[in-house]
């Protein structure tokens, strides 16, 4: 039983990590708090719904296409937003940075209302994963294992990108010392734009992956943003591995916490956030600037 709780916690953690990793990277490199992060997530879910349902009569094939295409679409939207709006705000006060993200939240919510209406939208779980799989004596739905696997794969991929590629070197250099890196001729514009693209790609992927389980819901934007912020803050702003650790921590606290105090789930994340920040003001893996 505890093993099953552990696996369901792992599944929550995988989604939380994908949701929050991008937010953390943006802050680490660009020093930008993108409050509208969850809006990209919501948009990804609705786009994936349309592609899965409308593109092909076979919803499995449609979902596969959505899985490949939607994160890219979201990345393109993210890049457009960066070029049009955030690019002009990197030097501005943190307050002035927050303002346009709030504007974006309103815009995205209205866009979804206008295009997809007010009802929740959903797709079937891909039929490849309809059978539960026995893992160490417990039956776990195949799709959950797929989510956990994808989360792990993407973690490795991001690790490789950041630690083993020339691009990653520039990212690390900029994150470590922005002014010095820029002074040495790192093309800041391109760098920031690509970071934004990667970050929105990740959140787009999270949206598509969770769609068969959660459905596309108007209003999921704020919930997703709050979840992502909790992960990033507990892990430490700008730390990808912190985000991973925090996602695991939150996933496990939820999975096991409900066995102990099922009536206070609503406060779990915020209590965790407050406690971590009070003990370690920069989060688990963060550095105070």
């Amino acid at each position: 039983m505890l093993w099953l709780q552990f696996m369901s916690g792992l599944q929550s953690a995988a989604i939380l990590f994908l949701l929050a990793a991008g937010l953390s990277i943006i802050y680490g490199v660009c020093h930008l708090l993108n409050i509208a992060h969850g809006s990209f997530f919501m948009l990804a879910m609705f786009l994936a719904y349309s592609i899965t349902e409308k593109l092909s009569s076979n919803s499995d094939a449609g979902f596969l296409v959505a899985l490949l295409v939607v994160p890219l679409m979201i990345a393109i939207i993210g890049i457009l937003v960066e070029v049009l709006i955030f690019r002009h705000l990197y030097k501005a006060d943190v307050l002035v940075q927050i303002l346009p993200s709030i504007g974006l939240i309103f815009l995205a919510a209205d866009l979804v209302r206008g295009v997809w209406g007010l009802e929740s939208r959903s797709i079937d779980t891909p039929s490849w994963f309809s059978e539960p799989v026995a893992v160490m004596g417990a039956y776990i739905p195949g799709y959950y294992l797929f989510i956990i696997g994808t989360g792990a794969l993407v973690s490795v991929l991001v690790w490789f990108l950041v630690n083993r590629t020339p691009w990653g070197l520039l990212v690390r250099a900029t994150a470590a010392n922005r002014d010095a890196a820029l002074g040495l001729g790192v093309n800041a514009r391109w760098m920031f734009t690509s970071v934004f693209g990667l970050s929105t790609w990740l959140v787009g992927l999270a949206g598509v992956l969770i769609l068969p389980l959660a459905g596309a819901n108007p209003g999921s934007d704020l919930d997703a943003s709050v979840d992502a912020f909790a992960v990033v803050v507990i892990g430490g702003l700008g730390s990808i591995w912190g985000a991973l650790a925090a996602a695991l921590l939150i996933g496990m606290v939820k999975a096991f916490g409900i066995l102990i105090v099922p009536q206070f789930t609503i406060a779990f994340v915020f209590i965790l956030m407050a406690v971590v920040l009070l003990v370690r003001p920069a989060g688990l893996f963060g550095k105070l600037s």
Partner: peptide, 23 residues
């Protein structure tokens, strides 16, 4: 006992609740 769950509005991740209920 311990099977009265209250989840925040907007929750869409129910895996751990369902496994707990089943147990």
């Amino acid at each position: 006992d311990g099977c009265e769950f209250w989840v925040p509005l907007g929750t869409t991740d129910f895996a751990s609740y369902i496994t707990a209920i089943m147990s």
